[in-house]
């Protein structure tokens, strides 16, 4: 792989744009996962009574069970959201950038 292709891609403002957009999205999603998960771990450690609360009268379901199920679902939905956007919007932009770099090199 010639280094000049890499240099051309690096100088393409679209590349900077792609990296910026994807990077922001990735850190945003990761932050949600970290904050929710470690927030939950902290709640279990410091406020176990809150986690043991039964929010619905007549039901044994606790906040802990709901929070657990919520995390399984939401974290998976976040992966779905990321894969859709990365495989759609970001990959399309990526293709353009790569094609332009090869075109320029001809």
């Amino acid at each position: 792989m010639s280094s000049s292709v890499y240099a051309r891609i690096r100088n393409n403002p679209q590349f900077t744009e792609l990296v910026k957009r994807r990077g922001r999205f990735v850190w945003f999603l990761s932050a949600i996962v970290f904050v929710v998960f470690y927030g939950f771990v902290m709640a279990v450690a410091f406020a176990p009574d809150l986690v043991a609360m039964q929010p619905f009268s007549g039901s044994h379901v606790t906040v802990g069970i709901l929070a657990g199920l919520f995390q399984f679902i939401v974290f998976w939905v976040l992966t779905l959201i990321y894969v859709r956007r990365a495989n759609g919007e970001f990959d399309a932009l990526n293709k353009q950038i790569v094609a332009a770099a090869w075109e320029e090199g001809k």
């Binding site: 990761s30 992966t79 990321y82």
Partner: peptide, 23 residues
């Protein structure tokens, strides 16, 4: 429910691997 909480810890690595590492 302790076991359920533990399972979340076991699961939560996957979204992080996807976001930060997979591609």
């Amino acid at each position: 429910v302790d076991a359920y909480i533990y399972m979340i810890a076991f699961f939560v690595g996957w979204p992080v691997i996807l976001f930060l590492m997979a591609e």
